[in-house]
Design a protein around this nucleic acid. Structure first.
Lengths: 243, 243
DNA sequence: CGGGAGATTGATTGTGATCAATCTTCGTGG
DNA sequence: CCACGAAGATTGATCACAATCAATCTCCCG
């Protein structure tokens, strides 16, 4: 496993994103137990796969730092980016159902993840049944996120999709204490396009137009949002929210 | 609550779809406990809402008989059908995360559902922690289903979407012991269109073309599939599977 | 410094949306 | 039970948005 280092005991308590991984109020003893289970931290270089579609499901992963995309692929080579994930978000939930991952997860920058091995998850739930409701809740939120992507793909025009995408990123960065109006895109135009059901040229053109219209400033991967309000009115209906 | 009758004790053991609601091997005592919790059966007339977006989350529902659609709606009136559900399938999982349903569920024909009240689900998991893995598994499968819809909406052309849709219905009907090649659509052209990200005219035209080409026979809502193989080659990549 | 991937911009095309008219079916009330 | 009306479906003509094809351009990364 190249570029991979296993650390021992990263401790959730020292992680500034713990409340993002486990947003619901946990009792002290429950949290301590959880912390003990998440004992492995894994580092990935940009471009490395965290898991691949078809592999046996081994773990859920909470992202500690960095940025990931997940994608499903078809037999004929097409693929669809199904999500972008940042600190405090959970990936791998699609693997639980059939004990096999159905998507790829790829690091889009050097990243660090906290691993929740499946067998330990089992033990944990056995001993702390209340915790299982937290996991059900997080999976439910993933379903809600997916519903919103369906809404976007099924109903919205190119500029609405882009606006929704930028605002969603903005909101999630804000929640993590980063600037919501000045950030660097971690993914390529092609990956944005795949996620939004558009071709990369359309993504590029639409961003350029937003730039001309003074809604945003685009400097390659660097984005500054100037008129968030106008972007919001563009996405009238869609209530995309991070998780 | 008009048209609604509450029955007592439907008993999963008498339900021919129990293995669809709970596909994983359950111990006898676990299943008995589950059976005891699902004690309410509710009947709905065609057009009735099982729940609406924004309502407090009260229960998960397993469909006993009938057919449902789920849909999310935007502030500006557009809406997106997010799924069609038949016997043995579970709806309401989007409500668990925020204790509020985020979608509507509407009966597309007279239907009967088994109710799993949230507070009873909690009790159940407390006493039988192993059961929670079954629910996590079912939610994971819902996520996989959603990923496949994203793939369809993001990557496929109109005829591919329709072919995938018909084959998916066919497969699920087959699993329930119904004819996979001769069935009645429960939803309108507009609802199919909303689900597939197409306009109703495109759905109608594409079905007509399949009919002319001898792939299927369309008689309004009655569909006969003549050349499933050809439909399958149309959807090369997409691996849509029911749940 | 050079090469290659990614991004931008332009010209043209094509698929599906839109607008529109007719037809069918089903539900409702007389 | 039949007639009527409304909703749903089909089909046609036209239009628009995003895809495609194509030609630079820029910026990393080696």
């Amino acid at each position: 496993m190249p570029h991979t280092i296993i650390d021992i005991k990263p401790h959730c308590n020292r992680c500034s994103f713990k409340e993002l991984c486990f947003p619901l109020g946990l009792e002290a003893d429950e949290f301590a137990k959880l912390d003990a289970v998440i004992r492995q931290s894994r580092r990935l270089k940009k471009g490395e796969y965290l898991f691949r579609a078809g592999e046996n499901f081994t773990s859920l992963y909470a992202i500690r730092t960095g940025f990931f995309k997940t994608a499903v692929n078809t037999q004929d080579g097409r693929d669809q980016v199904t999500g972008f994930f940042m600190s405090g978000e959970l990936v791998g939930m699609d693997g639980l159902g059939n004990k096999t991952y159905t998507s790829d997860a790829v690091a889009l920058e050097d990243s660090e993840v906290c691993e929740l091995p499946y067998y330990r998850l089992n033990e944990l739930i056995e001993h702390f049944p209340k915790l299982s409701m937290h996991f059900l809740s997080m999976m439910s939120k993933e379903i809600i996120r997916d519903q919103n992507v369906m809404l976007l793909l099924g109903n919205m025009r190119a500029e609405e999709r882009l606006a929704a995408f930028l605002l969603n990123l903005s909101e999630r960065l804000n929640m993590r204490g980063f600037s919501p109006y000045d950030f660097v895109l971690r993914m390529s135009r092609e990956e944005i396009g795949s996620y939004l059901g558009l071709k990369l040229e359309t993504v590029s053109r639409t961003l350029s137009r937003f730039n001309q219209e003074g809604l945003i400033v685009v400097d390659h991967k660097h984005i500054r949002i100037l008129q968030a309000k106008k972007l919001e009115t563009m996405v009238t209906g869609c209530n995309i929210s991070s998780e």
